[in-house]
Nucleic acid binder design. Structure first.
Lengths: 126, 126
DNA sequence: CCGGTTACTTACCGACATGCTAGTACCTTA
DNA sequence: TAAGGTACTAGCATGTCGGTAAGTAACCGG
């Protein structure tokens, strides 16, 4: 489906008030676009990661926030948690198939932001 | 470029720590994925809108937040503001070409969220 | 001269998101 | 016995985000 078709489709949805205030889509959207949710999903888009890896990749995240974010994404069925009963503990996080669908849309967005961030910040000052 | 290539590309960026804590990309990402920023960008993706229209479409947004969101997006060079010197005042908001690039990536994401929101919320309870 | 319209701005305030610091549990290695 | 690695959880402090409500400006129509 072409982009313009997508936009047209979205228009029908907006006109039909498909994005009302208390709608489930708002909730899911908040999870997906949350400050850390985006980074975690992107980090998992490439391959399964362990707790410590995620901490390092999503630089600046606290342990509390990482735990909370992962829990939310798991509840949403986007992330799969697999704990291995070994010592020291080992837990692998990966995307579910639903999560991969989402990541496929998210990654190009992130790439665009990365590519244009400097340009945009420069705009601010000019 | 294929999705898997995109992911691979992103991987190089992550490994190279292209998403560090104080990075401009984090800032831009926060604007773009902010609670109301997403909705405003999506609303403008289809056609230019007036202040009042945006208020109605992004249901639940306060005037303060709408003003703040629009100002941020304008500063980022994603939204263009055009005030007509008439009474009563008329102001049109539209996407810049940069904004349209972004919206082209954002709209499919929103569409996906809308399509899967119910399914995801159902997952929570099961 | 008073209400209505449109697009804001400002001040105030509370709640929630987030950060920081500790603490837990278990085993390994020294 | 003590330190260290891994994956958390809990409690308290804080700060920013976002909401509410009111005010501003400019003109028109009645």
């Amino acid at each position: 489906m072409s982009v313009s078709n997508r936009v047209t489709e979205l228009r029908r949805r907006f006109d039909a008030e498909i994005f009302p205030a208390q709608c489930p889509s708002r909730m899911v959207l908040d999870h997906v676009t949350s400050k850390w949710g985006v980074l975690v999903l992107a980090a998992l888009a490439e391959e399964p990661r362990r707790w410590g890896e995620l901490r390092r990749i999503a630089e600046g995240i606290s342990e509390k926030m990482l735990a909370q974010t992962l829990k939310t994404l798991e509840r949403d069925g986007l992330v799969h948690r697999e704990a291995h009963p070994v010592i020291p503990p080992r837990v692998d996080y990966s995307l579910t198939s639903r999560g991969e669908e989402l990541a496929a849309l998210l990654v190009p967005l992130l790439a665009w932001v990365i590519d244009h961030a400097d340009e945009i910040v420069t705009t601010e000052q000019g």
